[in-house]
Design a protein around this nucleic acid. Structure first.
Lengths: 195, 195, 195, 195
DNA sequence: GATGAATGAGCCTTCATTCAT
DNA sequence: CATGAATGAAGGCTCATTCAT
C-alpha cells in the first residue's frame, strides 16, 4: 500500500537531491524535478506542499543520513583517538561521495526560517555527537572543541568538493592530518622561533 | 572628499551590501537597492552593469577589506603566537562587526563563474597569508594547517553570527581558545582514558 | 472542429494578427495579445516562445494563405490574360479585405534574420508563381516582368489600404486597369507628341 | 551666425540618417545619434523636440531631395519617352546610392500620424510629378498610370537594395526595361497562346 | 547654448502553484 | 491519485527625456 506511494515520494526526493545539489535551489525548477522523477508537475505537489518544503525534505533526509551513519560508525570504536578518527573520515568521505552535489550545501533558499532552524538543529546534533565523544575523554570545553574540530574538517573538505582530481586516498590523508592536528596541536610541527 | 561621483558609487555599494547581506542575492531587488541608496532605479545601472556585477563589486570590496586589514594587523606582530592570535581575533571580530550581513557569504548567485573564481581567489589569498605565518614558524604542511586553522575560526564564528546575544568579549574568548587549541592541541584538555 | 488545443493556438494567432496588423510589432504588447485572445499572459508563452516567434507565425500564416489562395484561383483559369487578371484581382482584393491590418506588412521587427529570410522566400515564391504564368506565355524576361507586374499591383493597392472610402468595385477597376496596362502598355493611352 | 547652429543641425540629421537608415527607428538610440554626431545627448533635444520629430526631419529632407533632383532632371528632357526614362533612372539610382540605408524606408515609427501624413504627401507629390509628364503625353488615366509606373520601379529596386552584388549597370538595365514595358506593354514579349 | 547624470515608466518573460478533468 | 494546461504576480533592465550646472 504505502509501497507504491513511497516509490513516488522517494523518486521526487532523489530527483530533487540531484537537481538541487547540482544547480542549487533557485536554479532548479519544479518542472525539472517532475521530469527527472518521471512524473507530472502537479504530482510533486501531492507529496510536497511547496518548493521550499521539498528542499527542506531533501536536506533533512541528507542530514539525518549523515548523523545516523556517524552514530553507527562511532559505536564500533572505543578509544577516543579512534572515535575522533572516525569522525574525520566520516566527514570527509561523506562530502567526497557527494562531490556532485555541492550546491545543496551552498545554495539554499534565503529567507526560510524553518530551514535555518533545521540547519541549526542539525549543527547542534552533529556538535553534540562530537561533544559526547569529547566528554568521554574528559574535555573541559567540549562544545568549543567540537566546533573547532568540525570546522577544521569542514574547511579541509573544500578542495575535495571543488577539485575534481581528488582521490579517496587524499581524503583519508586529510582525515588523519586533522585528527593528529586536533589531538596534538600545531606545535609538534612548528619551530616557533620569534619572527 | 574623494569626489562627488564617488559618493553615488559608494552609496549604491553600501545599500547593496546591507541588502544582499541581510536578504541574499535572490531576495534583494534592484529597486530596493536604489531606494535604499536614495536614487532612481535606472541610476544603479549607470554604475553597475547588472545585478550580478553589483554583487561581485560588493563581495570584492568586502573581501579586499578583510585581507587588507589582516595584512596591516599582522605587520605589527612579530612572534608566531602573536600572529596566530591576530588572525583569530581578526576573523572573529570581522564577522562580529558584520552580524547583520550573514547572507552575503551564504546566499550568492548560483551560476556566476566570475564570482566562483573570485571567491576561490579570496580563499587562496587568505590561506596564503596564514601559510606565510606558518612557514615563518617552520611548518611542514603549511597549507593543510592553514586551512584547518581557518576552518576552526570559521565554525567558531557561527554562533557569533546567529546568536544575537553574543558580545565582543565572547568573540575574544573564542579567539584565544582557537589559538591555544591550534598551537597545543586538544590533548592538554583531554584525559584519553580508553572508552 | 480540429481540436480544443488548436482553439487557443488560433485564438492567439488571430489576436496577434489583429494587433500586429493595426499597431505594428513594437507598439503591440504581449499583454494586449493575451487580453484580446481572452487568456492569461503566461499562456501565450505556452504556444509561442517569444514575441518575435509569434510575429513570425502570424506572418507565415498570412503569407501562406495568400499564396495558396492564389494557386487555387490560377488553376481555374487557362488563358494568359485570364491568369494575369486573376493575379491582379487576388492581389488587390487580398489587401482590400485586410484594410485594417496595414501594419503587418510595414512594421515588422527590425533585426530578425529569420523574418527577413522568410519575407524574401515569400517574395520569391510569389514572383515564381507569376513567372510560371508568364513563361507559359513565352516571356523572355519573366522575372523582371513578374516583379514589374507585382510592383504595379502593390502600388495600386496603397489607396485601398489607406483610403477608407474605397469600395470593392474600385478595387476591381484597378485590377482591370493593371492587367490592361501590363499587357498592352501605356502607348495605347498616350499621344506622345514631343513636349 | 546661423552657420554654426546649422552645422550641428546638419550633423544630427546626417547621423540620424545613417543610423535610422541602417538600424531602423526602434533600434536606433538617441544616445547613438548624439555620439555619431559628436555632441552630447541633451544637445539633440535643442534641435529636435523628440526622436519622432527627428525621424520626420530626416525623412523630409530625404524625400525633398528626391523630388527636387527629379524635378531638375525632368526639365532637361523634352520628349515623353525621355522623361519616363529619366524617372526610371532617377528612381533606381536613388535607391542604388542608398543601399546602405534600407531601413529608413521600411522601419519607421508605427503610430505617428504626422509621419503617415507626410509620407502620403510625398507619394502624392511624386505621383503628381509623374502625372504631369503623362498629361503632357495626353494620358486619360494619368493617376493610375503614374502609380503603376512608380510601383513597377519600386519593386524593381528591391534586388538593388538587398543584393549587394548589384551594379550601376544592372540598375540602368532595369530602368530601360521598366520604361520599355510601361510604354509598350508585355505583349511584345509574349506569345499569348491559350494555356 | 551645451552638457551628461539622473530619472522612472514600461515591457518581456519566468515559473511556482492551482485545479478541472 | 495523477495530470499538465493555465495562471498572473513579480523583477531586471532599457532608454527617451529632463534639468541643474
Amino acid at each position: 500500500m504505502s509501497g507504491v506511494s513511497n516509490d513516488k515520494h522517494s523518486a521526487i526526493l532523489d530527483a530533487a537531491y540531484t537537481l538541487f545539489g547540482s544547480g542549487g535551489f533557485y536554479e532548479t525548477k519544479m518542472s525539472q524535478v517532475a521530469e527527472q522523477a518521471g512524473i507530472a508537475k502537479g504530482t510533486v505537489y501531492l507529496y510536497f506542499k511547496s518548493k521550499e518544503e521539498l528542499f527542506m525534505a531533501v536536506t533533512r533526509r541528507d542530514c539525518e543520513g549523515f548523523l545516523q551513519q556517524l552514530d553507527g560508525k562511532l559505536q564500533a570504536r572505543h578509544s577516543l583517538t579512534d572515535k575522533l578518527a572516525v569522525i574525520a573520515e566520516h566527514h570527509l568521505f561523506y562530502y567526497y561521495e557527494r562531490k556532485q552535489h555541492t550546491k545543496l550545501f551552498f545554495r539554499a533558499p534565503n529567507n526560510n526560517p524553518e530551514l535555518v532552524a533545521y540547519m541549526a538543529l542539525f549543527m547542534e546534533q552533529y556538535m553534540q555527537a562530537v561533544v559526547k565523544v569529547l566528554l568521554e575523554g574528559g574535555a573541559t570545553e567540549p562544545e568549543l572543541m567540537a566546533q573547532s574540530y568540525i570546522g577544521m574538517l569542514d574547511r579541509l573538505k573544500m578542495d575535495i568538493l571543488f577539485d575534481a582530481s581528488f582521490t579517496a586516498a587524499d581524503a583519508l590523508k586529510r582525515a588523519h592530518f586533522a585528527g593528529r592536528l586536533f589531538i596534538s596541536g600545531a606545535m609538534d610541527n612548528l619551530h616557533p622561533s620569534e619572527g
